[in-house]
């Protein structure tokens, strides 16, 4: 009797259940994944390959063939020699314009939105919920509706500042006008992001800080800010990507000398004079896309953590 129980226990299933590698399920799963991955990776591959070829090689028409003779000539040309109209400085000017637009816009929008979110989360006042609802509503208004009113606002504000300071100041067409527009348009979504994050911070922490005698700014800078790094990184990524990739506001609210990189890229690629230099166009496009890509790779981990911590929740 004892023997049979022992042998039964030895024979029965034990340990992890064996799984087949090549099951129909796995073939479907990995097959789909591979096809989709190729679908997305192929255009990038074509772009990189083309940007490293000379024009004669491109004219052969083998889009997918790797370059026989690798040349960085198109990259150099795209950066510093490509022409838009009479201007032949390449993308570099647009790059520096974009940086000048990006840095203050990102800084300002995050600074204001984080304080907004903090106030709405921790210092509820009468009507704060209504205020918040109205602010969020702003995220759903199509940008196109606002374009012309903003043109007028920028013009009038510029005139107003000129009148007060006594010197000629134009907001419309200047980098600062665009910075203002980006800051305002980033406000709804960023405020939502920060408010939700700060709401998830335990309320007792905030109470403890008040008992400890910290005020509005004391709690913000000494308690909330140091423990909210992930959400600041998320906001930074959202803003850098959004503002860098913006084309619509850039083309409307600036003028040729202050065009951001995206607008200049468009002007280079869509220029109708002369031969279409595909390799230069590809290089120029890759150069323009590089900044958000680098930001993402550098801070990708923090991004995911921040999204998980506050943005989705609440």
């Amino acid at each position: 009797m004892a023997d049979t129980t022992v042998s039964l226990a030895m024979e029965g299933p034990r340990g992890p259940k064996p799984r087949r590698r090549l099951s129909p399920r796995n073939i479907m799963l990995y097959g789909t994944l591979i096809v989709v991955a190729l679908y997305y990776a192929l255009p990038l591959y074509v772009m990189i390959v083309t940007s490293l070829k000379g024009m004669p090689e491109i004219r052969l028409g083998n889009v997918f063939a790797p370059p026989v003779e690798i040349t960085f000539e198109p990259w150099v040309k795209a950066w510093s020699e490509a022409c838009t109209g009479i201007n032949c400085e390449g993308l570099s000017r647009g790059f520096w314009n974009s940086i000048q637009i990006l840095v203050p816009s990102v800084f300002l929008s995050i600074a204001i939105a984080s304080v907004n979110g903090y106030a709405l989360a921790n210092w509820r006042f009468k009507g704060s919920e209504v205020f918040f609802t109205i602010l969020i509503f702003g995220a759903f208004i199509p940008y196109q509706v606002m374009i012309y009113p903003i043109v007028i606002i920028l013009r009038e504000m510029g005139d107003g500042i000129s009148a007060v300071t006594g010197t000629e100041f134009r907001l419309m067409g200047s980098i600062w006008g665009l910075v203002l527009v980006h800051t305002v348009f980033g406000m709804p979504i960023l405020t939502l992001l920060f408010r939700n994050y700060f709401t998830s911070v335990p309320e007792e922490l905030f109470k403890a800080a008040r008992v400890d005698g910290a005020g509005f700014w004391g709690i913000y800078f000494r308690i909330m800010l140091p423990m909210s790094l992930p959400i600041f990184v998320v906001a930074m990524i959202l803003q850098v990507t959004g503002i860098w990739n913006d084309f619509l506001f850039g083309v409307i609210y600036t003028k040729p000398e202050t065009y951001p990189m995206t607008v200049q890229l468009n002007n280079i690629v869509n220029s109708v004079q002369g031969v279409k230099e595909y390799n230069v166009n590809m290089a120029a496009t890759l150069l323009t896309g590089l900044v958000p890509l680098v930001i993402y790779f550098v801070s990708g981990k923090l991004f995911v953590r921040g999204i998980a911590a506050g943005a989705v929740k609440g």
Binding site: P202, E204, L205, K207, A208, V211, R222, I223, P226, M227
Partner: peptide
């Protein structure tokens, strides 16, 4: 002086 249920220590 106040002591809270969740301790409410400043984590950083």
């Amino acid at each position: 002086g106040m002591v809270f249920q969740s301790y409410a220590l400043y984590p950083q």
